[in-house]
Design a protein around this nucleic acid. Structure first.
Lengths: 336, 336
DNA sequence: CTGAAAGCGCTTACAG
DNA sequence: CTGAAAGCGCTTACAG
C-alpha cells in the first residue's frame, strides 16, 4: 500500500479506502489511478495486518478427535466448503480424545485469534468449554455435547436412531441383539445410543448385551471381545455398532472368525463408510446428515460471532436408516 | 502486555523480554514480578501481532485434492502431527482437482501469510507453482509433481511400484491384466504408474488394456466401463487400480455385476483402505509410506523456510506391496 | 475530496 | 538494568 501511495502520489489512507471499496470519499480519477497501480504491482493485502487492526481473522478452528477418521474428514470437508462461502478459512486440529491435547489446541487456536471454534469435544473437556463460555468466546459443539453445559450445539437424535436401528434388527426375527460400544466412555451421545438400544430390547423382552472396547486399543480388545462373545453357546444373532470405527474393527474380527453374515449374525452400524458397501453382504447403517451438520454449525457459529450474547441454540438433526438391498428383501432367519 | 507493565510498573518492553525468555537484560526481581503478574492475569500472547512484527506466522498451508479422501486425510493427519512438533499450525484446503480453486486457495493462504505450502498439485497448476518459485516462496510438492518444473518434492517410485504390482498379477498365472486409471489425466505420477504397468505387460508379451474413467464423474463412468469390459469374450483376468478411489468405485461395480474374486478376476490397488481388508477376499495393495511422506515434507519445507535459496530436494520413497493372505497362499488359476 | 495521525499488540535496536 | 520510540501493514476517525 505504501508503494502504491508513493507511485500515484496519494496518501496510504486513500489507497486503503479505494481498495476496500469505501470510496464515497475518494475522487473518481484518483480512485482509478490507485486501482490501476494496485493491479500493475500485483497488490495482495496482508491479512495479518488487517486482522491485527480489525480484531477479526476470518478464520475458525475445527477441533475433532482425529482428522484421518472418515467421519471427521468428511465433516471437515463440509465445514471447509461452508466456511469458504463466507470467506472463512479453517484450521484443523486432532485431539485423539485426549484432554490435554484438546486444551493445547484450544489455546493455540485462541492465540491465533480464530474468530470462533467448532468442536467435537473429547470426554472431560467440560471445563475447557466452561472457560470459553465465561469469556463469551463463540463456539459450537458438533456430534458430541454435554447435557449439563448449555452451549450452541448440533447433534443427531442419538436415542431415537439407536432405538429404530435396534427395532429393525429385532423385526428381522433376531432376539439376541448385542451393542458394540466404547468401554468407559462418559460421552452423552454414546450413552443415548445405548439407551435407545436398551429401550428397544426391553420392549421386546430381550436381554441387552454390551460388547465394549476402549478407543485407544480398539483392534486388540475387539479381537478378545469377539472371540469371547462369538461362541455358539452365547453368541448374539445381531450386532449394533455405535460408530463406523467400531464396525470396521469388528468386521475384521468377524471375518477372521469366519462367521456368516447375515446367517449367523445381522449387522448394523452408525455412520457411513465405503467399507460398508463393499462388505458382503453390504451393511445397513444409520446415515448422519454431515453436510447439514456442517452448514448449521457454521451458520450458528457465524451468528454467535456477530452477536456474542446471542442465546444458545441447540440443533438436533434426524438420521436416516439406510438398508442394504439384502436387508430390505429378506428378513433374516436364524439358521444356526 | 500493557496491563502487565502497568501493574508491575515497568515498560512494555521489559514484559516482552521476560515473556520471551530474553532476560539477560532484565533484573531478576523485576523478571519475577512480571512472570507472576502474567501468570495471575492469565496472559496469552496475541500471535497475530507477533506475526505482523516478525513476518512469520508459524503456520503452513496444506493444499490437497479433497480432504475427505482417505489418502489425503491420513496425510493431513501426519502433517498436522509433524507440524505440531515444531510449533506449526496447519491450514487445509481442497482443490477438487480444479485449477481455479487451487489458485484461490494459494492466494488466500499467501494473504494469510503462511510461512510455506505443502501441495498435492492439481493438473494444470504448473504456472501457479512457477510464480511461487519466482517469488522464492517456500513450498514442497507431495504425491504429484511436474517433471519439467524443478521444485522440492516428495513422491513414491510410481513406475517401479506399478511394474512390481503388475508382475505380481502376471506371476499368478494371469495374462489379461487391465489397468484402471483416470481418463485424460495429465499428471506425471499417473503416467508413470501406467508406464510401469506397460513395461511389465510388454515383458510378458501381454497386450496392455486401459480402463479409464473421469475424476469428476467416476462412479457413473465406472459402471459403464465395467459393464463394457467385463463380458466373457473380452474380460480381463486381473485389474490394477491406480488409486484407492478407483478401486472402491470399481469394486462396487464388480460386486454388482457378480464377478467372483479371485476366480474371475484378480485385483490389486494403489493406496491402503479399510474397505480393502473387508472386501472378500481382501485386496492386495501398494502401501504408500504416508507418515514418512508427511515427515519429509515438513522437514523439507521447514529447511526451505529457514533458507529460501536452498537447493531443491527431491525425495523418492519406496512403497510396499502388501499381499492379502489369499494372494500369498494360492496363486490364482483361471477358472472361467 | 484528501492527508496526517493514532492505533491494533507486539519486538527490538537505541540511548541512557 | 531499564524506558522511550519506531515499526510490522493495515484502518479509520478527525481535521481541513
Amino acid at each position: 500500500m505504501k508503494d502504491i501511495a508513493r507511485k500515484v502520489g496519494s496518501s496510504i489512507a486513500l489507497v486503503s479506502y479505494v481498495l476496500n471499496n469505501k470510496e464515497g470519499r475518494v475522487g473518481l480519477e484518483m480512485a482509478e489511478k490507485i486501482r490501476k497501480a494496485a493491479e500493475d504491482m500485483g497488490y495482495q493485502p496482508n491479512l495479518v495486518a488487517k486482522s491485527l487492526q480489525s480484531g477479526r481473522t476470518n478464520s475458525l478452528g475445527l477441533i475433532v478427535a482425529d482428522i484421518s477418521n472418515g467421519f471427521f474428514s468428511q465433516l471437515a470437508r463440509d465445514v471447509e466448503d461452508e466456511a469458504a462461502k463466507i470467506g472463512y478459512t479453517v484450521i484443523i486440529g486432532s485431539t485423539d480424545e485426549n484432554m490435554e491435547k484438546s486444551q493445547r489446541l484450544t489455546e493455540a487456536f485462541l492465540n491465533r485469534q480464530v474468530d470462533g471454534l467448532i468442536i467435537a469435544p473429547a470426554a472431560g473437556t467440560e471445563n475447557q468449554l466452561k472457560i470459553l463460555k465465561e469469556r463469551k468466546f463463540p463456539f459450537v459443539l458438533v456430534d458430541r455435547y454435554f447435557p449439563d453445559l448449555l452451549t450452541n450445539s448440533i447433534r443427531i437424535n442419538n436415542f431415537e436412531s439407536a432405538y429404530e436401528a435396534t427395532k429393525h434388527l429385532l423385526s428381522g426375527g433376531r432376539e439376541k441383539v448385542a451393542m458394540v460400544t466404547y468401554a468407559d466412555s462418559t460421552m452423552a451421545h454414546f450413552a443415548e445410543r445405548e439407551k435407545g438400544y436398551r429401550l428397544a430390547m426391553k420392549e421386546s423382552r430381550s436381554k441387552p448385551q454390551l460388547i465394549q472396547v476402549s478407543y485407544s486399543n480398539m483392534q486388540a480388545e475387539m479381537a478378545v471381545q469377539m472371540k469371547k462373545w462369538m461362541r455358539p453357546e452365547c453368541q448374539p444373532d445381531a450386532l449394533l455398532f455405535a460408530t463406523h470405527s467400531l464396525a470396521i474393527s469388528g468386521l475384521k474380527e468377524i471375518r477372521q472368525i469366519g462367521l456368516r453374515v447375515p446367517q449367523d449374525l445381522a449387522l448394523l452400524s452408525f455412520d457411513e463408510n465405503d467399507a460398508f458397501a463393499l462388505f458382503d453382504p453390504a451393511l445397513s447403517f444409520i446415515r448422519q446428515p454431515l453436510a447439514t451438520m456442517a452448514a448449521e454449525a457454521v451458520k450458528l457459529l457465524f451468528a454467535n460471532i456477530r452477536d456474542s450474547s446471542r442465546p444458545y441454540h441447540q440443533v438436533v438433526l434426524e438420521t436416516e436408516l439406510v438398508l442394504s438391498e439384502k436387508d430390505k428383501k429378506k428378513p433374516a432367519v436364524r439358521t444356526l
